[in-house]
Each structure stands twice: as structure tokens, then as C-alpha cells.
């Protein structure tokens, strides 16, 4: 017992490369960004080195930013919940199927990653746009004379997000379902549970870790996005990430962009930390105990 309390450096040797990478590629750049957030923007792309809180004050007082935070939170929750529900079904199917070429199904899941995410997002214009496939079929069937407007609104943004992030959700749930002893559901059934009860009492609770991990991933990925709303959303469908994009690329106001970036990092970091606490996924201390 006394021995285990002594400092054991071995884990740190193994961790060192990734720690160095994180420091070089995340911690140091983010520190620059934090420093930059105190600079003052004078005109397009002209900054003055300073230590002032003007940018932070603007962030805290301008309700435009607060709206963006709420919008982002709301949309991230919607996308996460929908992805969880829509992802569970295929994950369950892949995990439970007796089909011999299961790897093929998993490959199909990973296949979309071979196509650029921008192209995949743009493809929705050809599906849901006014001249898109759906409207084409509807008009051909004579169900409507004028195209139904489905694009460039929040709905299209949600569809785009789900399309791109669903595989992450499915893979996480799948891994967790795959680890469940295949005799547990039959055991519950022989004890008197209906198929649905057996699922709810046994499989669902045991797959929660995967569902939780997938949800966190999708939430954070959505919360940090700006490309999907840019391509599929209307003028009002912006996320917090779009404000950063606007500040940096359109207004060339880097200090404000830095302020917003740092804020997004802290907010998403907080979500991850809180969530890990809640879900008991923070096993790090145990691993080193």
C-alpha cells in the first residue's frame, strides 16, 4: 500500500509525447489568442498592442453575442438529441445483426469520411433545394406547383449537422452495445420481460456510456461549427462560430475574434468538464490510483 503512494514516473513517460503535442499545438497558440484578446482594433486589420478590456466588455454587454450563445446551445442540444435517437437504431442493428459481413456495415459508416465534409454539406442543396431532388419528385407527382422551400433555414442546418455527425454517434453507441454480453437480453426474456422491457432494463442502461460519449462529441462538434450554417442556413441561422468567422474574416477584427474564440473554448471546455463529472466518465484519477 505504501508503495503505491510513491511517485511513479512511468505513466508520464508514455504520456509525454502527447502532452508535448498538446502544449505546442493547443496551449501555446491558445495563450497567444488570450493575449491577442486584450489588443485594440483600430481599423480593418490594424491592431494596437495593448492591455485593455474593451473586447471583453463588448462581449459581456452586447446582447448580440448572448443571443448567439443561446442559439448555439439550443441548436447543439437539438442536434445531439436527434442524433442520439437516430443513431441508436442503426447502432443497435449493426451490433445485433447475425449478418456475417458486419465489417461491411461498419465500412459503410466510415465511407462518408472519404468525401470532403463541405461537399457532403453542399449536396443537400441538390436534394432539398428548389431545383433539388425532393421538389423535382413532388412537382413531377403533381403534389405541388411551386417548389416547397426547405433550404436556407434552421431545418436545413439541423439536417446538415445530423448528416455529418451521425457516424460519430453511431460508432460510439455501437462500441458500447458490442461490449454487452449477448446472453443478457435472452436472460431477461426468459425471466419474463417482453422484448421492449428487456431492452429498457438491460441493454439501454448498459449502453449509456457509449450514448453519453457520442452525445458529448456531437454536442461539442456542433457547438464549434460555422461552415454548416454558412452553407445551409439563412441570414438568421448563425452560431457562435459564425461570429468568430465574421470578426476574423469579414471585419478583420482579430482582437475581437480572439476574444470570441477564447470564449467558445472556455464554454465548450466547461460543458466537457461538467458532463464528465455527471456521467462519471472521469476515470483518470482511478487509472492512476
Amino acid at each position: 500500500m505504501a508503495e503505491s503512494k510513491e511517485f511513479d514516473p512511468r505513466p508520464w513517460y508514455l504520456l509525454a509525447p502527447s502532452m508535448l503535442a498538446i502544449i505546442a499545438l493547443v496551449v501555446i497558440p491558445m495563450s497567444f489568442i488570450l493575449v491577442y484578446s486584450f489588443y485594440e482594433n483600430i481599423d480593418l486589420a490594424i491592431d494596437r498592442v495593448a492591455f485593455q478590456f474593451g473586447n471583453w466588455q463588448e462581449l459581456l454587454t452586447d446582447s448580440y453575442y448572448h443571443t448567439a450563445i443561446w442559439k448555439t446551445l439550443r441548436l447543439s442540444i437539438i442536434v445531439t438529441v436527434l442524433a442520439a435517437v437516430l443513431g441508436y437504431i442503426p447502432a443497435y442493428f449493426i451490433a445485433m445483426t447475425k449478418y456475417r459481413h458486419k465489417w461491411l456495415l461498419l465500412l459503410l459508416l466510415i465511407l462518408p469520411f472519404w468525401v470532403s465534409f463541405i461537399i457532403r454539406t453542399l449536396s443537400w442543396i441538390h436534394i432539398m433545394g428548389n431545383q433539388g431532388a425532393i421538389n423535382g419528385i413532388l412537382m413531377w407527382l403533381g403534389l405541388t406547383d411551386t417548389p416547397v422551400s426547405m433550404m436556407f433555414n434552421e431545418f436545413a442546418v439541423i439536417v446538415g449537422f445530423i448528416h455529418v455527425f451521425l457516424p460519430y454517434m453511431i460508432l460510439n453507441i455501437y462500441v458500447s452495445l458490442e461490449g454487452i454480453d449477448e446472453n443478457l437480453e435472452p436472460a431477461a426474456r426468459t425471466l419474463g420481460a417482453t422484448p421492449w422491457q428487456a431492452f429498457r432494463e438491460v441493454t439501454l442502461p448498459l449502453s449509456l456510456p457509449g450514448l453519453a460519449a457520442g452525445s458529448l462529441l456531437v454536442f461539442v462538434l456542433t457547438g464549434g461549427s460555422y461552415v454548416t450554417p454558412l452553407i445551409l442556413g439563412g441570414p438568421g441561422d448563425f452560431l457562435f462560430g459564425n461570429l468568430i468567422y465574421d470578426a476574423v474574416v469579414v471585419e478583420l477584427n482579430w482582437p475581437m475574434g480572439a476574444t470570441l474564440s477564447f470564449t467558445l473554448l472556455v464554454l465548450l471546455g466547461l460543458v466537457v468538464a461538467l458532463y464528465s463529472r455527471l456521467m462519471g466518465m472521469n476515470q483518470l484519477s482511478k487509472a492512476f490510483g
Binding site: P186, T190, T194
Partner: peptide, 8 residues
């Protein structure tokens, strides 16, 4: 299955 009352 759940109505057979068998112990497995």
C-alpha cells in the same frame, strides 16, 4: 419467451 415460465 417471456410467457413460457422457464428458468434458464
Amino acid at each position: 419467451i417471456h410467457k413460457r415460465n422457464l428458468g434458464l
